[in-house]
Structure formats: C-alpha cells, structure tokens
Amino acid sequence: MTDSAATRLSRLLALVPWLVAHDGVTLDEAAEHFGVSVEQLQEDLYLLIVSGRPGHMHGDLVDIQFWDDDRRIHVLDPQSLTRPLRLSPDEAASLLVALRVLAQVPGPHDRGALASATHKLEQAAGTAMQAADRVTVDLAADRVADGVAEAVTTALADGRALRLAYVSATGEPSDRTVDPMRVLALDGRSYLEAWCRQAGAVRTFRLDRIESVAVLDEAADVPRDAAPVDLGAGILRPEGTPVTLDLDPEVAWIAEEHPVDAVTDLGGGHLRVVLPVADERWLVALLLRSGPAVRVVDRPDLAERARASARAALAAYGVTGS
C-alpha cells in the first residue's frame, strides 16, 4: 500500500532529527525502526536531499550521506529539521492513556520511571495532552484479592516461584505452584502468565480469580522451551469443541459477550451461534443461567446435564421437580 503524502511527510519530519540523534545508523536499522522497506527509506532520503530553502543553492538543501559501502547514514545538514514536530493530540493521547493503563497494571515495571516519563510527556505535549482525557481505560472493574498484585510483582522482580489458590471459570478451586513469566493486561483484564508445574505447560491465570498467593523462597524455573502466549493471535481466544446454540432475543448478548465462531441471523432477533467450548461445565452453567431462552442444537447430553443440575438444586430447596 502506498502512503498518503501526509503520512510520508510525517515520517520524513521524524526521520531527519532521529538520524541526527543516531549518527552512523545503517540503512537497515533505520528502515526497521520506521517500519518501512530499505528501498522506501532510500526513496525518502533521495527526496530529502533535493529539498530545502527556496533558492536551492548549495547550502540551502538537506544534506545526507548514505551511499557508502558500509550503508551508514550521516546527516551533514538537516536544515531546519533539527527537532521533531511537536506531538499531535492523538499522539500525545495514545502514549498518555497507555501510561495511565500501565500504572494500573501490576508487574515489575519501574513505577518511578513510569511517573517521571508521564510527567515529561505531559510537559512536552503541552495542550495536546488534554486529548488524553477523552479516553478512559478501567482495569479495576474486577476486584483482585488483597496481596495478589504485590506478590505477583515481587515474584517477577525477584525471580521467585509462586503458590496459588486459583478458581477456574467454572468455579473449580485448585492449588498450583507456578513459575511466573509475565503480567498480561489484555482488553481490560489482568493475567499472570506462568509455567504451571501441575499442568507441565504455560498457563494464564486471571488475577481476580486468584484467591490467595504466597511468594516461595524457591527460585522461579521457567523451562527454556516454554512458549509465551502469542499476543498477536487474538487475545486468549479459547480453543474448544464447537457447540451450536439457538438464542432467543433476550439472550442474544451471549454472542456479544463470548467469542463465537459463527453467527446466523434466524430473524426476529433470534440467532444461531457456534460457540467454542473448552470446558463443558462452563457451558452447563451458561445454560442454567440462561434458562429456556437458549437451546442446544447438537448436544442433547449437555442440555440433560443442565436439567439434572436444576433438579438437584430444587431438591436442595426441598422442592421436587416434575
């Protein structure tokens, strides 16, 4: 895709001062930093060296040397492009909002540096920083138990193992010893990514589902081949067996709240969805909560499990189901 003139000009205006600050950088390094091909970078440089003050006499033009065998770039005369253009409101907002998000995330990142970087950015942005107030991101919607954030931060900073009392999405409690890898804050929720010794695999644990936690004296020992979660591949999208459900209009939100593989509009607000189900107990709980407004199309056994669970619950109230 070809850039627009404005996009390209923005890059050129950032490129020259960056090259001045990084004298002797190679063509490949500069291209990678600006996210363009080496060919595109060379075209940018050729455009720059024919530009400058009116008159276009010697001494009026940008002068950049970049054709030596070592492919290193030297800016001999940047003309008036000695400083980057000040931050636009969107640019200031994007970083400031992100810094405010990071301040809410537990983890080993340097809090002092976070605060001072925020302050310096606000100073540099000037009035553009007001744009950051247009965007609010709340990570505190789900309460995290006391001490969990601190323990996770300590374990990551000091490289220690953790003992967790964890409750799964279906309410199953478990005790696990884990070797922490990272804190992940993804779309509004915070997770601990760790090597789980019980599972013998990398697992993510929602911080608000950790009931209690202890930092162990033992050093964390993440196996060398433990692969971190691929954040580019969609955010913790569950794998599972597809189950087809018909949704009445009042429970159509299920298609909005859970990642569904397919949605068919059945008309009149009714939907047919295919939901990946990793844990059948989770689906049974969903069926119980939703009542007859959800119908399982292809798994009568799961519908029957929900019904049996409802019957047992009625019995616990001293009521006999029909």
């Binding site: 923005s10 001062p17 600006f34 931050l87 640019e91 994007s94 540099a124 992940l184 804050a185 954040l231």
Partner: peptide, 29 residues
C-alpha cells in the same frame, strides 16, 4: 500508528534507548 509515531519523535529527541523488557505486556484492542 499514533503511538509509534509519538515514540519515534521522543526517540529523535535524544532519548536513551529503552530495554527490551519482559515482565509486563498490555494490549487494548
């Protein structure tokens, strides 16, 4: 894109190079 551009401007402004950290990552879609 705005965040990347802002970072490049700040880096052009004589910032020290940051470390490739592990330990925390945040994504907002």
């Amino acid at each position: 894109p705005a965040a990347q551009q802002a970072l490049r401007k700040l880096e052009a402004s004589g910032a020290a190079a940051g470390r490739e950290v592990v330990g925390v990552e945040t994504r907002i879609a």
